[in-house]
Amino acid sequence: MNIDSIKDGIVIDHIQSGKCMEIYRLLDLEKLDCQIAIIKNALSQKMGRKDIIKIDAAIELDFDLLGYVAPGVTIDIIRGGVLVEKKTPELPEKIVGVICCKNPRCISTTEQELPQVFRLADRERRIYRCFYCESMSK
């Protein structure tokens, strides 16, 4: 299968197989009107199978959350057909509106319009805790 290489845009590579649509939604890519290629189950020497997203536009996106949602992804910034930057997103210090606190005693389960906020408690062990009740994310 051939997908044209992009001239100015972003390639999100090394996505764990099956996770590309989650990332597509997380980055709000449905709001873009440029060409976007979603490649599922591509062959990979390192991963066996992987997903890839190619965005054919030189835009700025907030990739912070990818470190949490899709560890190991790489982000290639392409300009004029040349790879100008390669990023590996790290775990963000704070995650808002992605994880829901599962502790039934947490104030976030009842308080109106309170955003779900989680903070990185242990980078090495990838542990996030609820900002309000400090329960671990599950």
């Binding site: 104030i107 389960t109 329960s135």
Partner: peptide
């Protein structure tokens, strides 16, 4: 004092 954890923080 509140039965919900995190209420005083809010």
């Amino acid at each position: 004092r509140h039965p919900k954890e995190g209420a005083p923080l809010v």
